[in-house]
């Protein structure tokens, strides 16, 4: 599995709450291929978000190694990790996380602004993204002037604007009604069909079933992996 995009081995993540310890992730072994579409499911508190944060380099494991595109990223400095996040990883959140004072276009451009990409190129790519996600007539609207579905479309446009290798989505449809959530999932799946690795945390078994691979978490452990089943 040398070509795997993501390789986790012997990952442990422990939170200390006073005297008690919470094992959010226990001896996790996981490999995800480039271009895969993975659904992460499991009960609340099972460690799904913790896993996603780890994959997105927002969090560090207490033990174990994480190889991203063949490179050990657990030992990188915070600055180097920020760079990896900027260039290789796109996040989509349940609560959208748009900057309220910025317009849709400015929110979409934010990762490029942070990365120091020149304004001309930014404008070009934002215009393209707005068109792609059907937001051209909403470019100058602020988040509070947008519907939930539109906000999540802006968030997806923002997540993809740096052309990342993978999209990490933590319950992206959790705050949306079924029809809107369906639209959002279609957009994400379309990105996956163009080669972007897609990892989605969801409580919805129907949505989870649409992924190529299902992971079931329970109490910090990987209980069930559909990929392992197929091989067996």
């Amino acid at each position: 599995m040398g070509s795997a995009l993501i390789e986790l081995s012997a990952i442990e993540r422990v939170f200390h709450l006073g005297d008690s310890e919470v094992h959010a992730l226990r001896h996790l072994e996981l490999a995800i291929d480039s271009g895969d579409y993975v659904a992460v499911m499991g009960p609340s508190g099972s460690g799904k978000s913790t896993l996603l944060n780890l994959l997105g380099l927002l969090d560090r494991p207490n033990a174990g190694t994480y190889h991203l595109e063949g490179r050990d990223v657990t030992t990188l400095s915070p600055e180097e990790q920020a760079r990896v996040r900027s260039e290789r990883i796109g996040f989509v959140f349940q609560s959208f996380h748009l900057v309220p004072r910025l317009t849709a276009a400015e929110n979409i451009a934010l990762p490029m602004t942070l990365a120091g990409i020149d304004p001309a190129q930014r404008a070009e790519r934002v215009a393209q993204a707005l068109a792609d996600y059907g937001l051209s007539n909403r470019a100058d609207h602020r988040p509070d002037q947008l519907s939930g579905g539109q906000r999540q479309r802006v968030a997806i446009a923002r997540a993809t604007i740096m052309q990342p290798a993978m999209i990490l989505a933590d319950e992206p449809t959790g705050n949306l009604d079924r029809a809107t959530g369906e639209d959002v999932m279609r957009l994400l799946e379309e990105l996956n069909s163009r080669g972007v690795t897609l990892i989605v945390v969801t409580h919805d078994t129907l949505l989870g079933a649409r992924a190529h691979r299902q992971l079931l978490m329970e109490d910090g452990e990987l209980r069930h992996d559909s990929a392992v089943l197929e091989k067996a």
Binding site: E79, A82, H97, A115, M162
Partner: peptide, 8 residues
């Protein structure tokens, strides 16, 4: 901002 790649 950090998730989007901003450094400290």
């Amino acid at each position: 901002l950090k998730a989007l790649g901003a450094t400290g």
